[in-house]
């Protein structure tokens, strides 16, 4: 249903003219052959010269006014947000900000938000809902900060509340994964009606290093973990985690920031335009269904439970002629 209305991935198989028109990749087969390996995608997504949120915001949106602070503790520089115009339409933006240099990265905490960052995001989501502004979020984080201060201030609670608010926020939400989509810290900005990603972006349940540290007990197995977790763009398209990919310039987004931003702008304008026409009640139930559908479960097809296995002597009593076989 979501696809029929907003023309995203699965609709592309039926009548995907809208999505393709917006320059989006809705099927992994549309990508050029010789796609990068998972580990190459991880490296590209982490490239320090890749355009980060504020650069993208400056090129995609007009008249961006940044808003600061969570009104409770402090302003987290790893999450930026504010109000801007997207092709003339005011929108609320919330984004994770990495640095383009070591100094900036230290100031931005390498794009790893603290709980107050997520609480700032929550505040801005409420603002978007209150004034009926579409919400655009840009995801680019290795993960939420895992240090002692973050634990003290309730990192898990902040993320959980942020995810929950997004699932029921009464305004259209478009998510763009710019670089790294690192676990719950990314999902706290990642619940939307449409989830887009740049071609070389990754989105994973845990960082490859973290996965390797747990499953292989050694961070040096990260490359193998990255491949096993299927975290690169085409895989995300296959699993439906991402509705469509935004093409990057040849060689990756870091080679041409302007072209990357232009592609993002085209996609965003089309999606926000489309979502704004969907009645709010439909939008919310479609968003619920979008995330409700994730899961690969197997249930025994019949509603009836299979008969419990019987001991050999009882089978024998039932059917002594056939050696107990029924």
């Amino acid at each position: 249903m979501l696809d029929r209305i907003v023309g995203t991935r699965r609709a592309a198989e039926g009548n995907g003219h809208l999505a393709v028109e917006a320059g989006l990749v809705t099927d992994a087969t549309q990508l050029a052959a010789g796609r990068p390996t998972a580990w190459q995608a991880v490296q590209t997504a982490r490239n320090i010269t890749r355009p980060h949120a504020l650069e993208i915001i400056g090129r995609v949106f007009d008249r961006f006014q940044e808003l600061h602070g969570d009104r409770a503790f402090r302003d987290d520089p790893a999450i930026v947000g504010g109000i801007a115009e997207l092709a003339g339409r005011p929108v609320v933006i919330v984004a994770q900000q990495k640095g383009a240099s070591t100094e900036e990265n230290i100031q931005r905490n390498f794009g790893m938000p603290y709980p107050e960052g997520y609480r700032k995001a929550i505040r801005l989501y409420r603002l978007a809902e209150k004034f009926h502004l579409p919400l655009v979020t840009l995801v680019d984080t290795p993960g939420a900060y895992p240090g002692p201060e973050a634990e003290e201030r309730g990192q898990a609670e902040a993320i959980a509340s942020s995810i929950q608010l997004m699932t029921r926020l009464a305004t259209p939400i478009v998510v763009v994964v710019l670089g790294e989509g690192g676990s719950g810290g990314a999902l706290a900005l990642g619940v939307g009606d449409v989830v887009l990603a740049l071609e070389n972006a990754t989105y994973s349940v845990i960082s490859p290093e973290g996965c390797a540290a747990i499953l292989w007990r050694s961070a040096s197995e990260a490359e193998r973990a990255a491949a096993a977790m299927k975290l690169a763009g085409p895989d995300l398209l296959d699993t439906g985690v991402v509705d469509a990919l935004i093409r990057e310039p040849a060689g990756g987004a870091h080679t041409d920031h302007d072209a990357t931003a232009a592609a993002i702008k085209t996609a965003l304008v089309a999606q926000v335009e489309r979502l704004a026409r969907v009645p709010m009640a439909d939008l919310l139930s479609l968003r619920y269904e979008r995330f409700r559908a994730f899961g690969t479960i197997v249930e025994p097809s019949s509603g009836q439970a299979p008969a419990p296995p019987q001991p050999w002597w009882r089978r024998m009593l039932r059917n002594p002629m056939r050696g107990g076989e029924s």
Binding site: I163, L187, V191, Y203, V241, G295
Partner: peptide, 17 residues
């Protein structure tokens, strides 16, 4: 559950919704 990759991550949103 890391063995289910990003699908496992999406369970956070699903349950919370």
């Amino acid at each position: 559950r890391m063995q289910e990759g990003t699908i496992a991550l999406m369970q956070l949103a699903k349950t919370v919704a």
